[in-house]
């Protein structure tokens, strides 16, 4: 049980890391949101699952936290995306796209 829990914790940590790496590496706010939201959400769920295997008695509270993250994180992202668009930020386009698959 403890080993399964640790594996989930590492997987969760890995996806949190990838999400954060995504918001550093992606070229504009929309792509950063894409990487950040998805990976951070699954990462958090991974950590929560890992903790469940260490402390099965906490299942009810862990489930509430998981549901809360699952509901709020896409709502937050869409709100930011809409704000960015209305603030005049245009999505990044790859260079030379008009000439086809250039660059």
């Amino acid at each position: 049980m403890a080993v399964i829990g640790d594996l989930f914790l590492v997987l969760g940590g890995l996806f949190l890391f990838l999400g954060a790496l995504g918001i550093v590496r992606m070229p504009d706010v929309f792509n950063r949101l894409q990487a950040g939201t998805k990976a951070a959400t699954l990462g958090a769920l991974g950590i929560i699952a890992g903790v469940f295997f260490h402390h099965p008695g906490w299942w009810a509270k862990l489930m509430i936290i998981a549901l809360f993250v699952l509901i709020t994180s896409p709502v937050g992202s869409s709100t930011i995306a809409r704000a960015a668009l209305s603030a005049g930020i245009r999505p990044w386009r790859e260079r030379g796209e008009d000439e086809g698959e250039g660059a």
């Binding site: 894409q34 939201t37 998805k38 959400t41 896409p74 992202s77 869409s78 995306a81 809409r82 668009l85």
Partner: peptide, 9 residues
């Protein structure tokens, strides 16, 4: 928003 490659704006 949470599925591959898409983000609702």
């Amino acid at each position: 928003t949470l599925t591959p490659g898409t983000l609702s704006v």
